[in-house]
Design a protein around this nucleic acid. Structure first.
Lengths: 207, 207
DNA sequence: ATGCAATATGAATCACTTGTCATATTTATT
DNA sequence: AATAAATATGACAAGTGATTCATATTGCAT
């Protein structure tokens, strides 16, 4: 619980010159690519430094362990996903409509970052605390917006946290079924069903 | 796609005598425990054989690789989960009521097998095909029962597959939030919210 | 231009893990 | 009781990967 801050991860030494900064970024980009392709455990530090085109020792100038560079990547990715969805949903006044928009934005993000997304799912087995932080901060934010919608009367009053996890789980599995497994957006019939299901589930009345 | 059968896994040699059967089981139980505690990748074959109290070479009498014993465990677990839920739901005539019952049964199973459940989640990164098989056969079964309920008029006619994945995702995430993370059943208020959400989402009318 | 901190290198070390194999023991069958 | 198949052992070969370190180079500040 509480508000953990993972902005400055220990185990990561930021470079102090411009030249170092370039190397640092090269390492992160290489790690992102290789982790995405082969997964965390199947990737060796040698894989990363080869892809980045630097020597073994250079890696340890900036990262203490393989886990540390992984953490750095995940935190960055987390901000990306949230920003994307937030921007997509922003301006959509109605919460129910926002659900649909958010669903689509999330799926598009998945389709464009399928490799990256793999990292988040594997996070559970690499650093469980960071994994919890990832979904908790996601869920807290979600729950907050649901609460606001309840105040406005857009949706029924219910336990916002339970709803937040339910909706995240729903999105994650639908995102797995079509975008991840079939590399395409969910078919229309599926989207309609989901929207209908959520609308009735959250809404104040039926038509 | 198609009906894969994972009943006789290659890479697994079943014992031919009673004595062998005992060793075989010892290995499986040890693997279950150690995988559950440390995760697949952090576990070595030495960990398993030490826990089982057998020699190195014995392992290779029955399993070709670490992955093979892992597969064997997952397939077994899969049957367990389904059996548990099926038995709990059996006899509950109404589909909506069955959802609640199924949710509870699933959570109880999680609470009693938290380590085991970790294996399924890690499966995605160990053997993606088996992972898909796991959730697909789960979802197909779920969808079939939803279709039947639609025929009977218990629930509205919608895309059963989309619903199945939605409901599984919901259950998985709620199961993660309370049973797994806090080692207790979801609080009453949460359960009420979820049941209400699903009831309205699936149901034919509102009250 | 000098000197010091930062950066870069890659060979070497250390800690493990997997998988094999010659040998020994046990079990089932006759 | 004899025999062959099945089971069990643990030392060992071979490989892999993480991390360190002595050394070299570069860049920045003075």
């Amino acid at each position: 619980m509480s508000e953990m801050d993972f902005n400055e991860l220990e185990g990561v030494t930021r470079p102090k010159t411009q030249r170092g900064e370039v190397t640092f970024q090269k390492l992160l980009e290489a790690a992102e690519a290789v982790f995405g392709e082969k997964g965390y455990y199947e990737t060796s530090i040698v894989d990363i430094i080869q892809r980045a085109g630097v020597a073994q020792g250079t890696f340890y100038l900036y990262f203490k362990t393989k886990k540390d560079i992984f953490r750095q990547l995940v935190v960055h990715l987390h901000h990306e996903v949230r920003k994307t969805i937030q921007e997509a949903v922003q301006g959509v006044a109605n919460r129910l409509a926002a659900e649909t928009t958010g669903l689509r934005a999330y799926h598009n993000f998945l389709l464009e970052h399928r490799n990256l997304y793999r990292l988040v799912r594997e996070l559970e087995f690499v650093d469980e605390d960071l994994f919890k932080w990832y979904y908790q901060s996601f869920a807290n934010n979600y729950a907050r917006r649901l609460s606001q919608a309840m105040e406005k009367g857009d949706i029924r009053k219910m336990d916002p946290e339970a709803l937040a996890y339910s909706l995240i789980g729903l999105n994650v599995f639908i995102g797995m079924r079509w975008p991840l497994w079939e590399n395409r957006p969910a078919p229309t019939i599926a989207v309609e069903t989901i929207v209908d299901f959520i609308t009735r589930g959250l809404g104040t009345e039926t038509k």
